Simulated scan of single mutants.
Amino acid sequence: MINMTSHISTDITQGVMQISINRPEKKNALSQQMYRGLTLALQQAQQDDKVRVVLLIGTDSCFSAGNDLQDFLGAGELNAQHPTVQFLYELAQFTKPLVAAVAGLAIGIGTTALLHCDLVYAADNARFQLPFTQLGLCPEAASSVLLPNVAGYQRAAQYLLLGEAFDAAAALSMGMVNQVVSPAELMALAQQKAQQLAALPADAVQCSKALLKRSQLAHTKETIAAELVQFQRLLHSSESQARIAAFFQR
C-alpha cells in the first residue's frame, strides 16, 4: 500500500492497481492535494508495465461527494497548472483499462469521472448527481458530450440542466454503469472483473480501448477545454457566488 496523499492510496495486486479515495469525514470530497494524488497514481499506473488495469474505489458508504468547494475556490485560475485540470486530462487520455466501484454518494466529479471509465459497477445504495447549474456553474470533465453519448440527449439534459439526483437503477438503465449489486457484493465483483481484464493480453486490451475511444478522444479534450472556459467565467459571476455562499450556510 502506497499513500499518494493522506487520503489517496494505491495497492498493486496481480496487475491491478487499486486507487482508494478515503476521506470519510468529508464524504470523500476531493481537495487539490487529493487531485494531485489521483493524477500521480494514474501517471504511475501508465508508466508501470506491471500495472495492466486500474480499479478506482471510494469507501463502503461514499464514492465521492465531488469537489471540496472551499479548497477548490482557493486554488486559483483553472489553467494547466491547476490540480483539478491536470487530473481531468490525465483521466481522459489514460490508455489502460479503468474500472470503478461506486457505493453511496457520487456527486459532481464523483459522477463525471465515471464517464471516462471503461467498466463501472455500482452498489444499489449509489446515488448520483450533477448539481452544476444549482451552483450557477456548467458541466465539467467533458460530461456535456460524454453523458449524451451514453444516456441520450433528453436524459442528459434532465441530469445536467435540472441537476436532479438519480439512483443506481437509473444509471444502469441509461448505460452509465454495467451492473448493480448489493453493497456487500460490490468489491468482490469489481475486483473479479479487474482481474479478468488483467489476465488478458495487455497489448490487445489497450489496443481495443484505443480503438473504442479513437473517434471521441480529441473531441473529449476539446470539450474539457471549452467547459473550463465557461466554468471559470461562471464561477466569478454574482449568481454563482451567491449560490455557493448559500451552500456554505446550509
Rank of each mutant, 00 (worst) to 15 (best):
L119W: 06
R52A: 14
D124T: 00
A45S: 13
F128H: 08
Y159R: 06
Q47P: 05
K96D: 00
Q86T: 04
F247Q: 10
Q32R: 13
V180G: 03
D118V: 02
C117A: 10
Q93F: 00
H82Q: 14
M17F: 04
L30I: 15
S144K: 14
S173I: 01
C117F: 11
N3L: 14
A171D: 06
Q14I: 05
L211A: 11
I244G: 10
M4P: 04
I244F: 09
A156N: 11
A123M: 05
L235R: 10
E164P: 00
Q192S: 13
L91Q: 11
S238A: 15
T220L: 05
C62F: 04
Q158G: 12
Q154F: 04
F87D: 01
A45N: 12
C138L: 11
L160H: 09
A106K: 07
I12H: 02
S182W: 03
L78Q: 12
S240K: 09
L212P: 00
S215M: 10
Q249S: 14
R36P: 01
Q93N: 07
R155Q: 11
V102S: 02
R155C: 04
L114D: 03
L135N: 04
M4Y: 15
S9K: 13
T133L: 07
S6W: 00
P201E: 14
T133W: 01
V99I: 15
Q232I: 07
A65K: 02
Y35H: 10
K50C: 08
P148S: 07
P183C: 06
A156S: 14
Q232M: 12
V85L: 05
Q192T: 02
Q33Y: 01
F248L: 02
D118N: 13
L161H: 07
E222N: 15
G136Q: 05
